[in-house]
Amino acid sequence: MIRRSTTFWRALLLAFCAAVAVWLVAPSLIVVPLSFTDRASFNFPPSGWSAQWYTNFFTDPSWLWSLEASLRVGVLVAIVATVCGTAAAVAFSRTRFFGEQGLRALLLAPMIVPVIVVAIGIYAIYLRLNLLGTTLGFVVAHSVLALPFVIVPVLASLQGFDRRLEDAAAICGARRWTTFRTVTLPLVAPGVLSGALFAFATSFDEVILSLFIQSPYLQTLPVRMYSSVTRDTDPTIAAAATVILALTTALTVLASIITIRRSRVH
């Protein structure tokens, strides 16, 4: 009797999980086939197949230009946010200093504060500093949003890190920076790596803030897609969406493989 009811509940749980999974994946299941449609419409299912929207995406300078802008900003954000976020996480895990809790809350705030609020604030400041539509402006603004996504996983990695290893390195003659480079960093690398990927992804699909700070001279891919949707009904956007999907999926899979490999080595 007991066994039977557990089987029942397990089946129910499984069904529920399957429903959630379908719910999450469904949009992609529409977008990917739609990007291969042969007609300039969003009718689903497509009546025939063609790769013309990909050709369009990869030959239209305005699409390519915004893809290039997104990649450039994304990579720079990944670098800036990872370096700053890792440094912050190390500081938070190591030392107790005045105002630490406040500073931590401040750095993690972008996870909670509505992006629209941040966006309006940044817009006002950038207007005055002439940073609207500049790579620097995008990198700084996106890095602020991406910081929490680096700090959280790196802090988690540092929590499982044995501080005595740093003492051991120090007594072996390693200076602090050498200790960090040769002992601490390699051991928290999975956290840092996942932080870097999240930082890239945060920047790569950021729309709200980017809409505020964009200019005709610098539009990231999501901004370009957004204006494409409002202006023209052209399935190129489906091709663009599929490219983004493929790229982010590849990155996530790569990150998981690296993490699994590393944990096997240890």
Partner: peptide
């Protein structure tokens, strides 16, 4: 002097070997 300039050897209770 910081530990790295004392030229001392040390063995820790939980070994503290570098796992990587």
């Amino acid at each position: 002097l910081p530990p790295y300039r004392r030229n001392i050897g040390m063995v820790f209770q939980e070994y503290a070997l570098f796992p990587h």
